[in-house]
């Protein structure tokens, strides 16, 4: 216990000393890290906002009609309907009879006259689904095709083209966001690494002595890792505050315009926590890499 406390004190003391002795480099590192965390946080929040708006669009696009075969029994239809109702992917299901379909279609005059000529009702009954996500549409489309009670010639009104495009847009935005985040993350690791190298360099005699008298690698490493964590934490606190403020302004500005971006408190809190933990983790990892070369000898 005494030993652990003494080690911890030594590490904290050295970390603080490093930070102060190389104040210029340390602050530059914290500032750059902060900028990067701001960019990561900002881009994540932006992507999230765009996602939210697009998901609103998705709601409109996520209807699916499953056409039923004329000789499907009512029992089988009811059975299928209740199964769909229990599916977590589904928001709502309504049953549309052949007559309702005809009435609906008759609102269009040209279809109405065509139906009059035919005499009989060629329109199938259908189950109309509302699903939670755009991507579920293709899944239901595939599942419907396998059902015997579903019309085999035209199983659904699924239009893969439009939906696919919307899907692509969302996927691309998510990927671009992720790639930018990874690039920025790598840059901040390199920055921390170099900040720590400077600290290691200014302490080279101390490290040399530590190794000569038989200090363990971890004992040498801890002060630098703590210093990196401290820098990452400071950077995350400052940039997190800025990101939070910027997001609020953005939401307010957007509400004045047509586009309504909701303020997502839960996402924001999660994001701030992720930024803090991420800043500290990146700081620790960058420092680990920064001292590694010195210790391998």
């Amino acid at each position: 216990m005494r030993q652990v406390l003494a080690s911890l004190w030594f590490a904290l003391h050295s970390a603080g000393q490093n930070f102060r002795r190389n104040l210029g480099v340390s602050l530059a590192g914290v500032f750059t890290m902060g900028l990067i965390i701001f960019l990561v946080g900002g881009s994540l929040l932006f992507t999230h906002s765009v996602d939210t708006v697009l998901q609103g669009q998705e709601q409109n696009a996520s209807h699916l009609k499953i056409y039923l075969s004329d000789n499907a029994s009512l029992a089988a239809i009811t059975n299928f309907e209740s199964r769909l109702k229990d599916d977590p992917r589904v928001i709502s299901v309504t049953f549309e009879t052949k007559d309702q379909a005809k009435q609906q279609a008759s609102q269009n005059p040209s279809i109405s006259s065509a139906l009059a000529v035919l005499g009989s009702n060629p329109l199938p009954a259908s189950l109309n689904l509302d699903v939670r996500k755009l991507t579920y549409l293709s899944q239901f489309n595939a599942e419907a095709k396998a059902m015997p009670i579903v019309d085999s010639t035209t199983p659904t009104d699924y239009n893969s083209d439009v939906i696919g495009k919307l899907n692509t847009v969302i996927t691309v935005i998510e990927w671009v966001g992720a790639i930018i985040a990874i690039i920025l993350l790598t840059i901040s690791i390199v920055i921390i690494m170099n900040t720590i190298r400077t600290a290691v360099y200014s302490r080279r005699t101390e490290i040399e002595i530590m190794k000569l008298v038989g200090a363990t690698d971890w004992f040498v490493r801890w002060p630098f890792i703590l210093e990196g964590m401290l820098g990452g934490l400071l950077a995350a606190i400052f940039s997190g505050a800025v990101v939070f403020g910027a997001y609020r302004l953005f939401v307010q500005a957007a509400q004045g315009n047509l586009l309504s971006v909701p303020f997502d408190a839960r996402y924001t809190i999660t994001l701030l926590i992720v930024l803090l933990v991420g800043g500290v983790a990146v700081g620790a990892f960058g420092s680990f890499l920064g001292v590694r070369r010195f210790l391998s000898a």
Binding site: R2, Q3, V4, L5, A6, S7, F10, T205, E206, I209, M210, V213, G214, A215, F219, V220
Partner: peptide, 20 residues
Amino acid sequence: LTRRTVAQNVAFALQVTRPG
């Protein structure tokens, strides 16, 4: 270590190998 006193320089060897 130039920033440490004579006693601190000597103590350093023990502090980093046998903390506490």
